[in-house]
Design a protein around this nucleic acid. Structure first.
Lengths: 359, 359
DNA sequence: GTACCTAACACAAACGTTTGTGTTAAGAGG
DNA sequence: CCTCTTAACACAAACGTTTGTGTTAGGTAC
């Protein structure tokens, strides 16, 4: 071994000042230093002052690794997301980091790249890093959950957000997609539309399934029948929205509104409708889902559902911290369901304000 | 103290299996375990196999905290960004995390919220967490740099990206903004435009200053004079782009092109021009900067400069890792300058393909 | 004076690794 | 047979904290 020489004169340079250094300087024990810094009651006020002062002077930086090792718990939280792109995940991460930071935690971020194997490696890495808890939004390809069992068996707090594994025995924060679709479709109906079409997403993903169900619920509520030709299943790409709209406009009785389960797809539909000379929202009203940034930019602006990204992040952290603070006392899993917000914009607003009635 | 009972039978539950446990089980020393797991040459092949097997069986998770404490270096990198929103920072973070992960590092992410004081706290937190290096994009309000001096004095690798503190003695990865503005303006000129206006950003930010200089350089190159009325200084908001365009169109001799230092501002100008009945790009060509997602969605699509977000992240990690691997051997600071990419789109493409020459 | 209490600090053992330096035995070279 | 080398492993000291349990001195109650 090459024991680093404790040269007190060399403190100006590579300054790894430890508690031991402070203790030696003050002629007290490390116990006193540690307790003074953490404001323990058994240290006298003047001694505390002396310690604090010396710590400032040498600008002592506590080593959280050592503390975490000793205490068995770190001040780190782990996040696993499919990727950090687009609008949704960055916003949620933003919310998470902000809330975690406020609570004195730092955040380690991992990407699964929608790959279950990578997700598993991420879990291992976070376990290795001794995080105090893990937040995860599942990869598309994740179908087996034993890597999360490992987390649970260690008694490590775990919260899913947005993409959860379902069931009542997990902690999760999700958006009420059913409700979002319901109020969006209801809104279109309230604008006088009677043939509301739906651009649906892959039904093996629960979010899209729930949105479809919400759409159906709104139709039932209004006493309208489901017309098969007005529901198109897509992968939510912009081009597919356009293609669907093209086919709809060729129908003898085309829809007078479209509820899309995604904004990009809604955009495609909007553009195609205008290309075909239809007026939006007069001829066909359109609403999307996710409140992507561009929905405010299009002509007209697109009615959409806000997914409360920030709140989702905050709620996720809150749920995680509650578990952490619960410690080893039994904690019954809880699901937080966020209510979506309908943002009515130009693409769907047909009912004229009080004034000259429009056709 | 409450020494946790080492109950070998209880391993199935809260399984914090340590090397000591494995050593006891195999009747060997911890040295052997440690070296077997790290594939040290002084451990025989069969012993290695036995250790590996037992580790799998108990699914042993190495404790990186302890390793980092002992070795004095962790497998963690720190990132400080102003915020995790919009297109740019999330993309860079994406690139960083991907590259870091590939190199076996995990990443702690912090937000400064454009606040210098918060940025300083972030630095302290990362130092406390004993990260192996720090990557930072400066907050707008940062004007003093002593918190980074602290980092440097510890010999901790430090790399700035995008928003650097300038100078030759720091490590930085930046985009060549001057070049981006140059090629963009040059492009507008090549389209036959002769009165190219500029939507400039706050000049105390180097990126906007450089873009302005690039614009000027292109004019000089073409032998065109700078016309004061064609340069408007804004904060790059969409509304300001619209306002500027409105004023320009009232001029007796309005510009036939606009190079905006930002996409949002360009969007405002584009929308205003069309509101005023001008054709884009025929009457006025427009180009932006940053390759925001919406530039592909507008009508027409907006010519812009791609900032190589991903490459910036990768280059940042590369530069940081080089420093880390250099260890204590002197490392001369280096600046990596990324070349921007011009994306020609509908808003600026005026020159008809080979055919009748335009006026 | 004895017993008891509190305040203020010190001791030293952990937490789980890594690693320089033994130590031993077997094999090689002469 | 003796020496030298190498292989394969063990010892034990760190890394920088935290914390249960002393220990001491001074004060108070009786």
């Amino acid at each position: 071994m090459a024991p680093r020489k404790k040269n007190p004169a060399a403190l100006t340079t590579n300054s790894p000042v430890s508690m031991a250094d402070l203790a030696r300087e003050l002629g007290v024990s490390m116990t006193t230093i540690s307790r003074a810094l953490s404001n323990h009651h058994s240290i006298g006020p003047e001694m505390k002052a002396r310690v604090l002062k010396l710590a400032k002077k040498y600008n002592y930086q506590p080593n959280r690794l050592a503390a975490a090792l000793r205490k068995g718990k770190s001040q780190l939280l782990g996040i696993i997301v499919p990727y950090i792109e687009g609008r949704f995940f960055p916003s949620v991460v933003h919310g998470i980091e902000t809330a975690a930071s406020r609570a004195g935690y730092n955040v380690i971020i991992c990407q699964s790249n929608e790959d279950a194997a990578q997700e598993q490696r991420n879990v291992e890495a976070l376990l290795s890093a001794q995080v105090a808890g893990i937040m995860v939004s599942l990869a598309r390809t994740t179908s087996t959950y034993q890597h999360f069992e490992k987390v649970r068996s260690r008694g490590l707090p775990l919260v899913f957000f947005d993409r959860s594994m379902g069931g009542e025995d997990v902690n999760a924060v999700v958006l009420n997609d059913h409700e979002g679709a319901l109020i969006s479709t209801r809104h279109l109906l309230s604008q006088g539309c009677r043939r509301v079409a739906h651009l649906a997403g892959p039904q093996h993903l629960s979010i899209y399934k729930n949105r479809y169900q919400g759409y159906l619920a709104a139709l039932r509520e209004a006493g309208l029948p489901l017309e098969e030709e007005l529901v198109v299943f897509t992968d939510m790409a912009q081009a597919e929205g356009a293609a669907a709209m093209r086919r709809w406009l060729e129908l003898p009785n085309p829809p007078d509104a479209v509820f899309s389960a995604g904004d990009y797809c809604a955009l495609g539909a909007l553009q195609e409708a205008r290309r075909q000379g239809r007026r939006v929202p007069e001829d066909v009203a359109i609403s999307g889902f996710s409140n992507e940034a561009f929905t405010l930019i299009t002509e007209p602006t697109i009615t959409t559902i806000d997914q409360r990204c920030e709140e989702m992040g905050q709620a996720t952290v809150r749920l995680l911290l509650e578990q952490i603070e619960a410690g080893s006392t039994p904690f019954t899993p809880r699901q937080t369901v966020l209510q979506p917000e309908l943002l009515v914009r130009g693409s769907s607003l047909r009912v004229s304000r009080p004034g000259p009635a429009e056709a």
